[in-house]
Design a protein around this nucleic acid. Structure first.
Lengths: 273, 273
DNA sequence: GATGCACCCTCAAGCCGCTTGAGAGTCAAG
DNA sequence: CTTGACTCTCAAGCGGCTTGAGGGTGCATC
């Protein structure tokens, strides 16, 4: 019989942990002095403690360990438990490896530029939306503003209200500054079905835009001409982190002044390669 | 300006997390209604929030993120921080991979035997010890008990007290049941220097036994003839988990009755291959 | 103007696996 | 009989939130 301190030295488990295991009923001392409350342990408890440590080392929670030790589960349940743990760990290893790759990319960037990068790229999902949109080949960049003006002013007349910031989709595979295949989109209520005829003979129509599982996104603050850098940053992030683009990027005009206080989000649908 | 719920939907960050970031000073709302306490957020806060999310995704703590965002550290500190994080993550990936390998080994074993294995192997370090010992070629297994008896009875006469359970070291590379090269050891006080002459003309002497950085250990309960299985289990564990033996194994007689309540620990010094 | 209902607030507790600390009692050696 | 090392219990703390209780707000509808 040892006092807790001796048992702690023997097993290299902290006294506080032994007391905690006692509290949980995971490892009760062989004996407790009923007057002083002193815990006394015996060698016979080593196998049980070792099993606790071994299972803990496999990543099981103390609650799960208690089950394995006491609720003598069926072999079936036992297998299930470990298979689950295996899957969990595989997932975790993958995640940590990806995280490590991201940290290394960020570190290289800091070492090159000697400061934090200007754009932070995050992955997020984008919910399905119902939009009122116009798809068109746009001859030049200045035209974009014109089209936004025309389409926007047509909304109230048609009794349509935008329920989220407008955005556009770029369908060209490569960047071009002329004859761009673009779609101008206004998110509208899910039950809205409309067709609007515009001055130039084109039509805006409502349609569903499916959800995007994963998109690499970044936010640009300032005039639109600066968006370039954001695209560059996003492109680099996507490449160095092992993703690839799987759909047309979107430019969301969160705060659409076009001036220095404009806020624009760029979203690239991506997939892990 | 959005209320917290709208900002939460926009950013896909839970309301409770936004409130928590406010509390930490990590992301204060652009404005707070001084009468109702309602938080109001603006688009301008998106870049900051994105940076928070990006850094969180790299594994930084919120405290570290606050530093990066506000205490604008020197590029030197910044690099240091990320290099540290990199090292941490490399370590973690290794650990999780090893853990996964252990879980997979255990799973295979459960699938073979349809129950938890009888022996749990754990890794631990073994501190340096000062011992009084006798190294000898032992002709046969029954002789072992005899030698323990002789050496043990010589201790009191020499005024030596054992301060931990006795153990023996096995120097043979392979298992043999005859002519075993063994050392019988009694842990004694660090300042004890003695030579004891035994009946057969041999001498026990004191010496230092260095610490073992890592040892694979398991505990056997019961008669000594059952130790075999414990050795088998240990050997298998060492092999399947990618370790190799780097020193003579020890058999520690924790509860040395030799009967069914005997408790023996076997320790193999090991190294990751 | 009353009533819903969805939203917002603050404050406190809970999660896990312990660790740390306060305040008080116990044990063994000198 | 004192000293000092140990033991006990109980409470709080860690991180990054989440959950819930209890109560106030804001806007639309009757």
């Amino acid at each position: 019989m040892f006092k807790i301190g001796d048992f702690s030295k023997l097993t290299q488990v902290p006294v506080s942990a032994l007391r905690y295991y006692d509290e949980l009923g995971l490892l009760k001392p062989a004996q407790i002095d009923r007057f002083t409350g002193y815990r006394y342990y015996s060698f016979d408890q080593l196998p049980r403690l070792n099993r606790i440590l071994a299972l803990k080392d496999l990543g099981l929670s103390l609650e799960q360990i208690a089950q394995v030790l006491d609720d003598n589960l069926t072999p079936e349940q036992l297998r299930g438990m470990f298979r689950l743990k295996q899957a969990e760990l595989q997932q975790r290893v993958r995640e940590e490896q990806e995280r490590l790759a991201r940290v290394e990319a960020r570190l290289r960037q800091i070492e090159m530029e000697d400061k934090m990068p200007d754009y932070d790229v995050i992955l997020k999902s984008i919910p399905a939306q119902h939009i009122l949109s116009l798809r068109q080949i746009v001859p030049s960049i200045p035209q974009i503003g014109v089209i936004w003006g025309e389409t926007y002013s047509a909304l109230p007349a048609a009794g349509v209200t935008m329920i989220a910031p407008p955005f556009c989709l770029y369908y060209d595979e490569e960047f071009t500054a002329s004859d761009m295949d673009m779609e101008f989109a206004y998110p509208v209520a899910a039950d809205c079905t409309k067709t609007i005829d515009l001055a130039g003979g084109q039509q805006m129509t409502t349609r569903d835009l499916p959800a995007i599982h994963q998109a690499a996104c970044t936010v640009h603050r300032g005039v639109y001409s600066g968006l370039n850098e954001a695209y560059v940053a996003l492109g680099r992030w996507i490449e160095t982190n092992g993703y690839r683009v799987v759909g047309p990027p979107r430019e969301v005009y969160l705060q659409g002044s076009g001036g220095p206080d404009a806020v624009t989000e760029i979203q690239f649908p991506v997939e892990k390669t």
